[in-house]
Computed example of a mutant assay.
Amino acid sequence: MIRKLGQPGDLGWVVQSHAETYAAEYGWGFAYETLIAQIVAAYATEHDDRREAAWIAEVDGERVGSIFCVRRPDEATAKLRLLLLTPAARGRGLGAELVDTCLAFAREAGYKRMVLWTNAPLVAARHIYLARGFRLTSSETHDSWGDPVVGQNYELDL
């Protein structure tokens, strides 16, 4: 089930699940958790309900995934952020459902384009993005969380 973010504990769960999942899978540590906490805090304190939204995926009443749609300074562009599925929830189509929910919201909110930033090791997420027509616009190696990794920017006309 996909529901709007807004229950007590949702924000903290997003930060904790990202930090724990990516630390276990890729070794991304405290600097990565800090980035996620900053994104979540900005959403919690500054979002506009008409132009931004976030969702939680649940299985049997347990949180297992997230995604956010936030505005960019350019009023025509939305940004997809914080897509995550916990390892136990993968392979059920929930990632695709989260992305589709986010895209539908962006279209309804009047955005003309959606962008996202991801990292090359996140193959399953990239597959979902490409299947929906996102195109790679740039990539650059960074070492923000330890070992070098290729960050990738994607975009989709809505």
Rank of each mutant, 00 (worst) to 15 (best):
I67Q: 01
A131W: 06
T21H: 11
T118D: 03
L94I: 10
F105I: 03
D60N: 13
L5T: 11
D143V: 00
G146F: 09
L35V: 12
P73D: 15
R63F: 07
V150W: 08
W13S: 07
T101G: 04
T86S: 14
A104Q: 13
P121V: 08
E140H: 11
L103N: 01
Q16F: 03
I2S: 08
R50Q: 14
E46T: 12
I128P: 00
A109F: 06
G65A: 12
V15F: 05
L156A: 08
T21F: 08
W28D: 01
L5A: 05
D147V: 05
A76E: 13
L103S: 01
Y111V: 04
D157Y: 02
G95R: 01
A31Q: 11
I67T: 15
W145K: 00
H47W: 04
L80R: 02
G65Y: 06
C102A: 15
Y22M: 04
F30I: 12
E25L: 15
F134G: 02
H142A: 13
L103Q: 10
V64T: 10
F105M: 06
R107E: 12
A19L: 14
R71W: 05
Q38K: 10
G91L: 11
I56W: 00
Y32R: 08
A131G: 14
A106D: 01
E155A: 15
R63Y: 07
S138N: 13
E108F: 00
E20I: 02
R92C: 09
A23G: 07
I2E: 08
D157N: 09
F68Q: 04
E75R: 14
H142Q: 12
D100Y: 02
E46C: 07
